[in-house]
Design a protein around this nucleic acid. Structure first.
Lengths: 281, 281
DNA sequence: AAACTCCAACTGTCCGACAAACGGACTTTA
DNA sequence: TAAAGTCCGTTTGTCGGACAGTTGGAGTTT
């Protein structure tokens, strides 16, 4: 073997794990601190996490093999693995090409998926989502007008074209998907990660929730395309207030359509499509 | 033993785990699908996750013991554990009273902590955060004016008083903390989980980032208290536009102060205080 | 009914094993 | 010589089994 049995000397000693202190005592009196122990696997995770947060492990770097890691930290491989599983879910480590683990920074993709899920469980209503997006989306359009790139414009144009076709064909599934994509592109065009993170979880729930509406009200989807086109043109021309205006109309219209389709605004939204193919890979 | 060796019959058979299919083939041709396997521990996690998402496991319910779980799913306890670790990080299961695991719905607390961390790693700038909150906070104030509860009003009033004292005492640490809290209360007052989730990660980073400013510019913190007080009064009186107005002033002023204090707007924000005591428990 | 005792059931860790997949070095072929 | 093919050491995924320390209750005593 290479250099395996490094810190493994303490034989089978299931000690209550390391000690991460709670808080120092506020006032005078006893010099004790509420000592809180974390299970070792968490300490492992936190250790690696720190390595990444503090830049000693850069995104893309390969992590040590499980055995090596366990060895360095002086824990059993099983324990180290549990720690890795924690990080894996956080998105701080990812599987590149199947096996090997690499350090990474969690993208908004993973975060917003989890956030959406949480919102679902918290029984957000359509009204809740709409209230938020009613504020965010028009501003997003305005901001995007100043910052959008050629590439994004092109993507938008194509999106509008495809949405148009999907509407003609009456494919409600595709329409909602493309609708979501349209708004995502606008949001991303601002180039502000915080913004993206703020809108995406809600958007992911609200836009797909409208699938039934597309079926019920054919003219709704036609208005949708119209609005998208106007927004696209405004963005192309760098006309912030026009973009904002149409986006606002669009979002308002969206709610109206939802109501007209007989969908209840204050019921918790259902998930459906969102989760179908959402494997963690 | 009770009923342990249930599905354990297949002896040590490290099969490549279950098969969660990729996507069906789009066009004609081969009837194959890109088959993607997930490791068993993920399948375990996804299974339990589904139980929770679909309401068969309600928040608060005790999960089966690890052994029982492993038994039911026909996997080894170690594997089941790894699955649990995934869920643990997601917040879908929590430790109530130390040991036993209970189902839960992830609160905005955990989500926004992770989101903030991600934003840090993505090197968000102060400008980014401000751009978002500049849109969200004023609207939040306006919406809160219509919806705020007595309890929240009381909390706000107290917060303002304490902030006032902290400013007098020149405790910049407390001031930023209280500032953050003030805005959190306003955000929460709307009673919209989606809203909370949207603003919190950014708020958690932006407001604390101003600690140095409080020290450098004493009058800045005085203006801060003044603004908070005005906002509180407007909310108390149900005056939406006044609340919005002052919140907007306040947020604008915040940025000005930041600049005047010589802090650079387009540098990635640093973490500091945010992470110090952020253990996962 | 409240307080106390005690034990079975759990969790946290560790050890050891092994099949399958992967990655990279080495060899053969065009 | 570069492309294609082969082979073997690593590494990951799973499994089985063990054991110390805690904990939640059942059962008992006050």
């Amino acid at each position: 073997m290479t250099a395996k049995n490094a810190a493994q000397r303490r034989r089978a000693e299931p000690a209550p794990a390391a000690v991460t202190d709670g808080e120092a005592v506020g006032e005078a009196g006893l010099n004790l601190r509420k000592l809180a122990v974390s299970p070792t696997y968490r300490v492992v995770a936190e250790t690696i996490e720190r390595e990444i947060m503090e830049g000693r492990l850069l995104p893309g770097d390969r992590l040590p093999s499980e055995t090596a890691l366990a060895d360095q930290l002086g824990v059993n491989r099983s324990t180290a693995r549990e720690g890795l599983r924690l990080l894996e879910q956080t998105g701080l480590v990812v599987r590149k090409s199947g096996r090997r683990l690499h350090a990474a920074i969690p993208g908004h993709e993973e975060l917003s998926t989890r956030a959406s899920r949480a919102l679902l469980l918290q029984k957000v209503t359509f009204t809740d989502l709409h209230q938020l997006l009613m504020v965010l989306e028009p501003s997003a359009a305005a901001l995007a007008a100043k910052a959008i790139s050629e590439a994004d414009l092109k993507a938008l144009e194509e999106n509008v074209a495809r949405t148009d076709r999907a509407v003609q064909a009456g494919e409600s599934e595709s329409v909602t998907q493309l609708d979501l994509e349209f708004h995502d592109i606008v949001g991303a065009a601002i180039g502000n990660p915080a913004w993206l993170l703020a809108r995406e979880p809600a958007a992911k729930l609200m836009f797909p929730a409208a699938a039934p509406m597309i079926n019920a009200l054919p003219q709704a989807s036609r208005r949708l395309v119209e609005a998208h086109r106007r927004i696209f043109e405004a963005l192309r021309d760098g006309d912030a207030s026009e973009a904002e205006l149409w986006m606002r109309k669009h979002v308002i219209d969206f709610k109206r359509g939802y109501e007209l389709a007989g969908l209840s605004l204050d019921q918790p939204v259902r998930s459906d499509a969102t989760w179908k193919k959402e494997g963690l890979s």
